[in-house]
Structure formats: C-alpha cells, structure tokens
Amino acid sequence: MSDDSGLPDGVERRTFGGRERLSTRGAQVYGEPVDADGWRAWDAGRSKLGAMLELGMDTGLVGGESVLYLGAASGTTVSHVADFAGPTYAVEFAPRPVRDLVGVAEDRDNLFPLLKDARDPESYAHVVEAGIDCLVMDVATRGQATVAVRNRQFLADDGRLLMAVKARSEDVTADPDDVFDGVVAELDSAYELLETARLDRFHADHLGIVARPK
C-alpha cells in the first residue's frame, strides 16, 4: 500500500482502473468507481477538498472530527467528508442541489443537510453546535472571505478553516492573484493562515487555504 501519511483516518489511496486515487468508504453517490472492499474513488478533479488532500496540503484532518461544510451543493464532496468525519453539517442555499443532498444524507447517519444561506449564520446557529473542529468553505459566491469570517463563531479555538477560493466568483475580470490577495487580507481579521496553495492542477484559478482562528 502507498503512503497514506497526511491523510485522515478513513481516507486511503487505492487503485481504481490501474490508477492510484483517493478513496473513502461509504454508499456510492455519483457513479464513481467502487472497489470490491466498498471503497469509492474520490475524484480530486470534482472536489476542491479532494484536490487539497491530493496536493499534500496539511489540512489537520485526522478522521472523526465534527465538520461544518458551507456550499455543500449536491453533496459530491460532502459525501466523502461524512464517510471519514464525525457529525457533518452540510449547508447549501439552492433548493435543486439540496434535493440530491438529501438523497446522499439518507445513506449516512452523520450527515445533516440544511437548506440555509451561509451568509446568514444566525439562520442555522440554532442547529449547528459550537466548537466545530473543521469548517470547510466551498461557496461559489462573491464575498467568500466575509462568509468565512462570519462563520468563525462555530469553530473551536484549535479548529481549522479549509477553504477553496474561486477567483472567478469574486470578479471575472480581475487577475486571480489580485483576487486571492484581497481574500487573504480580509481573512486576516479572524484567522491565522497556515498554508496556501494553488489548486490549478485540478481546478483552474482556485486557491486552497488552510487557516486557524485567531
């Protein structure tokens, strides 16, 4: 078996179709390859968090932690997160993808779907517990940094923010580097940055960020 160091428990590199890929164990969701032992491939090209793990970023994830996932969409990535994490709160604003997200959650005991707006944390603070270990930000909207700052209150003091910034969501015309500088500067009010890396190998014009609350 290959080097799984740096990966949380419950995430392994396994061989699918002759190629080594990340995988987690759980019910199949989107037609991804599944091996004989029930592990299913986690496509880094379809998942920003998958790309961050694939690129070896130090996410601090160990497995079993509580997670607040903002921008869960139809649940592609969050299904893998729920496979290795503990209680996983999945927030998504658009009704159509939540229809699929509910289907993903029905197959998992620890995944809680919420049709809520991540820009308005008070609308789900009565459901999501305090002291979350890991806040995952995958919202494709303008003002991604503001959303991260507003949701700081859910995070434990030693928790982690894992964020994928999509340059084109902030400003289609600006240079991605300028957009990333702006986001990083705004995060600085609430977070200490631990690591950043471009995800271009998997996702064009995206920046992966690992941070912890100040």
Binding site: L114, L115, E122, A125, H126, V127, G131
Partner: peptide
C-alpha cells in the same frame, strides 16, 4: 429547524 434562529451556536 426551518424557522428557528439563534444569535450564536452553543453546545447543543
């Protein structure tokens, strides 16, 4: 869950 609100999270 649908209609409630809270100013901040707690150890629910």
């Amino acid at each position: 869950v649908r209609t409630g609100r809270a100013p901040a999270p707690a150890d629910w």
